[in-house]
Design a protein around this nucleic acid. Structure first.
Lengths: 355, 355
DNA sequence: AACGTCACGGCAATCGATTGCGGCTATGAC
DNA sequence: GTCATAGCCGCAATCGATTGCCGTGACGTT
């Protein structure tokens, strides 16, 4: 797998290879230089067809390509082969620190397989997402990794699909491969942690219910509290209408009326808003109220108090998503694997025994 | 400017447009449907040549394209026109919160002009950068926005260049357009702020000197302290060898031997490391030592103490970079404009009068 | 010596959009 | 009624790489 002739397209010098103005050298030039027909040169350059050319000829062609600094024309190749060796990575929000590490490991795996990663940011806007998807399709992306997580997302209904892998979202129809952190287990251990500290009145600041993560964590919270024998009356729930500090603040104000001794937030941003609400109400964290976040975004350890949170294996998620996609591209009709990667609870200073 | 026929390539339904398996409809199909020659259909679809076709025919072709859901083949078009309507954005580190807002505004401006943004992350690795640049060149990017900031960067020497704009780096040869925050002025106001609070012994935790930002801020610090009449003996300087908390910690430990009453850090991460060093030494910020960061990364306001820092107009930087690039693509031989955007000091709780 | 086999490489069509050139038709002028 | 002009459209070459098919020559076999 991989671009047939990448290995020998490298040039010694930076300048000529990467930044200098284009000096177009085509396959014809290489062929002329090696004194063969362009078709033959093509076969020599392509690992898959190389055995149809005499070894000595292959050497001559390779040599010529190297000398001339041949770079195959992506357009011509793509036009003929209908493949781009590019995959699109569709993110809801690049400024969310959750995604960059995922993107990075995706890029690493795909690059090793000869693929180019096209990152796009939909800014959580369906219209932008449509525009960008159309663009990626027009550029003939061979596959997609999709991290936008609205529950009524159109991919859910699509039947005959282009190769794609869903990230951070497992609630869709089972025909699409997906990778995500095991959020239910994550929420579960968070609740267990609080219960083991002695909490009995545990609230949940749920994220937006139209996002699959918000919905999934909410359900997981319900399951966990029930499983651990907490009365649902003791487990107040407020809904934040976005993953933001402001929404978290609003939801937390509501929540505090129910006087829980611990709170599980839908994500870290909501937890931050909750921290503000606690301060407002003159409550101390963790002595009055314990708090758990979700995602383990950077800098949380430096907060006051340092936030206990559920950590997602971002790098692994990216790696696995890329592998699944490569699988899918190679065998579009294979089974749609779905991977749940373990999350772990990072205990810091925002959780303690109730008074 | 812009892709000739974008406006009418939109399809009503998501599924068919964006996620469903490809149903290739070519220009021939449109032409057949509209009962014209493919060449004529092409002219009708292209705004620039539309006036060479009778209005009634244009309407028929447009109608046909709409009905059939025609999407021009990027490869075929690119092969013929040698343009991709794609630009590469080369970042040193996607996980650095400085960049996502810049990328976003870049994307917005470029999209409005019909261009696609290709984001790549070099991970601060020259070899990766070369690989990615070569890839972008192979994909015939029409231009580049480059935010990787090593001082001995190859673009500095390149003569005949592909259209590009440098971001956050103005120290290069003047032939390349560039946009950056006015870091010198930013450092200047930071130092002025400290002086106006009464500080006379102000240290600088400089960033890596092989990065243009590290070097530039260091020089700016020297200038500012001198201009304000501080003795250079009272202005100790330590060098961090990377923009990281660990390096900041190391450099700050050194620095504290000189007992400054205030410190200007090369960036926020270094400032965080400095905070740790202060804690280690039993020093309180800001009562014992005042501290100023640089970049205003997220969450700084929630720290203890909230960090005073220099804020960069990221969005504006992105917008201007994109505009400059479009300029450059349109007129590659025009003058290389260089833009310095004002920074401002965000005063929070980490700076106070010295005791 | 004649024939079959195989390895090698040339040939040309193809992918789909673009575009300069040239031809056709309709219109208007005299 | 004839000719000039311009508007409109078709034609075909072109961009560069890929690939199935076929021809050629060498070698081995009987």
């Amino acid at each position: 797998m991989g671009l047939p002739s990448n290995d020998r397209n490298r040039l010694p010098s930076w300048r000529s290879a990467a930044y200098a103005a284009p000096v177009t050298v085509t396959l014809r030039d290489v062929a002329r230089f090696a004194d063969v027909h362009p078709g033959t040169a093509s076969k020599a350059l392509n690992e898959a067809t190389r055995d149809r050319v005499a070894p000595a000829t292959v050497r001559r062609v390779l040599e010529a390509a190297e000398r001339l600094g041949y770079q195959p024309n992506t357009f011509a190749r793509g036009l003929r082969t209908r493949r781009s060796y590019a995959v699109g990575v569709v993110l809801p929000d690049l400024t969310n620190p959750l995604f960059p590490p995922i993107v990075r490991s995706v890029e690493k795996v795909l690059a090793a397989a000869g693929y180019t990663t096209l990152i796009v940011d939909t800014d959580n806007d369906p219209a932008t997402e449509e525009r960008l998807m159309t663009m990626l399709r027009a550029r003939h992306a061979d596959g997609f990794i999709i991290a936008t997580a609205r529950r009524e997302h159109p991919v859910a209904e699509a039947g005959d699909l282009v190769p794609m892998v869903l990230v951070n979202r497992l609630t869709e129809a089972a025909l699409v491969p997906a990778v995500a952190g095991d959020e239910a287990a994550g929420i579960g251990t968070a609740v267990e942690h609080l219960v083991s500290l002695g909490h009995r009145r545990i609230g949940h600041l749920a994220g937006p219910q139209d996002l699959s993560t918000g919905f999934g964590r909410y359900r997981a919270f319900l399951d966990a509290t029930q499983r651990l024998g907490l009365a649902s009356a003791d487990c107040p729930i407020s809904f934040a209408d976005s993953y933001s500090e402001a929404s978290g603040l609003r939801a937390a104000r509501e929540m505090l009326a129910a006087a829980p001794t611990a709170i599980v937030a839908g994500n870290d941003l909501i937890a931050l808003g909750c921290l503000d609400a606690l301060a407002e109400a003159g409550l101390k964290c963790p002595s009055d109220v314990s708090l758990v976040g979700f995602n383990d975004m950077p800098m949380l350890a430096r907060l006051n108090p340092p936030l206990t949170t559920v950590h997602l294996p971002q790098e692994e998620i990216g790696t696995e998503a890329a592998r699944l996609l490569l699988d899918r591209i190679a065998r579009p009709d294979g089974p749609a694997k779905r991977l749940l990667l373990p999350c772990h609870l990072t205990v810091r200073g925002s959780t303690a025994r109730p008074r």
